[in-house]
Amino acid sequence: MNEELACEMYGRKNLNYQYWRWQPHHCDLPRFDAIDLLEKLRDKRVVYVGDSLNRNQWMSMVCLIESSIPDRPKTLHYNGSLIAFKALEYNVSIDFYWEPMLLESNCDDPTNHRVSERIIRGQSIEKHARNWNDADVLVFNSYIWWRQLKLKILWGSFENVDADRIYEDVEMLKAYEMALTTWFEWLDNHVNRSKTRVFFVSSSPTHNRAEEWGKPKKHKCFYETEPIYEEGYWSMDSDPNMMRLVEKYINKLSSQGFNAQMLNITQLSEYRKDAHPSMHRKFWDQLTHEQLTTPNYHTDCTHWCLPGVPDVWNEFLYAYLLYPPS
């Protein structure tokens, strides 16, 4: 368990967030069965590719599976951007690969990626994609790292001397579509349509605007122990235009013969302001007493406690894998 997500271990007393379940209108999600899933994935490789929210979902899946095979052999290996979990009896690999921007960027280091200015290398995906091009199931996300007005696109190599580098400031949605175009073209040219299933997870909402549910703005999600009950609630921090672009490229993949789906987790997660780590997590920078007593500046309202909301996202994935759309 990553210490950023182990909320109970870091002092959270109210555990109601663990017990809410998602009930869609007009259908029922199948109950998650880890052994069923392992049988379905026998001799296969699943790779989650993305940022820390995708790692949040990957960790949820590993916990769901590992808890069902506690005495059976498994391994966990770290190798740079790749974390590989394997259930040996089933020869199933469930991996996570750190790549928050889809393309090569100055945020590629899996641990040291705090940068003052995000730079994406235009149309460059192969450096990362070669690490997951043999997967049977690919689960992508890329959203939160794009949330700024403009980004810098690098035409050239990060290894070139500064004089040889050409930078372009590009409006966010245009840059995002460029990344999705490169992603689509790579899949179209390199992935076996008859073998690989492709998923893209929609945006995971943040809950940094407590004023939206009638609380003081400074509180963020810190004091929250109940979901939002207003059906259809949508935060100002969630950008539907980005997800419409993802949907456009998922539809293009489907038209090209791919088994591709969008995992739409946004609306169900919008309600769950109660389920973030808040201050109940390990902070990798030592916080001062003043910081600890003014948690509005350091409250984590982006990631999700485990067990919790990402388990539902994986129930969606499980349903798609066991019962593909007709």
Rank of each mutant, 00 (worst) to 15 (best):
M178D: 15
N189H: 05
E171H: 09
E177G: 03
N189I: 01
Q148A: 05
V191K: 01
S142G: 13
R165Q: 11
V191P: 00
W186T: 00
T182C: 11
L149I: 00
E177K: 13
W155E: 15
W155I: 14
L151P: 04
V170H: 08
L151V: 08
K174V: 08
K150D: 11
M178A: 14
T181S: 10
W186K: 03
E168D: 14
H190W: 02
F184G: 06
R165K: 15
Y176P: 00
D134E: 14
L138K: 12
K152I: 07
K174P: 01
A135N: 05
Q148D: 02
N189V: 03
E171S: 09
K152V: 06
N141F: 10
K174I: 11
N141H: 04
I153D: 09
V161Y: 08
G156D: 12
M178T: 08
D134L: 04
L149H: 12
K152S: 13
L154K: 06
A179N: 10
L151T: 03
E185F: 02
V137N: 04
L180C: 03
K174A: 13
Y143G: 05
L187V: 11
M178N: 15
L138Y: 13
Q148W: 00
I144G: 04
E185W: 00
V137I: 09
V191L: 11
L151M: 13
K174T: 15
A135Y: 02
G156W: 07
L149T: 02
L151D: 00
E185I: 06
W186C: 09
L187F: 09
A179S: 15
Q148E: 13
E171D: 07
L180A: 07
D136L: 02
L173C: 10
T181I: 11
V191M: 04
I166L: 14
E177M: 04
D164F: 15
A135T: 01
I166G: 01
G156T: 10
N141M: 05
V191C: 10
N133D: 07
W186S: 00
D136C: 08
D136M: 02
F158V: 01
F140D: 01
E185T: 07
K152P: 01
D164K: 14
V161L: 11
Y176V: 11
E159V: 10
L151C: 02
M172F: 07
V161E: 10
I153A: 04
I166V: 15
L173T: 06
D164E: 15
W146R: 14
D134P: 01
Y143D: 09
L138W: 15
D162G: 09
D188K: 15
M178G: 10
L149D: 05
K152C: 03
G156H: 06
D169T: 13
K174N: 14
F158S: 05
F158P: 05
E177F: 06
L180T: 09
R147P: 00
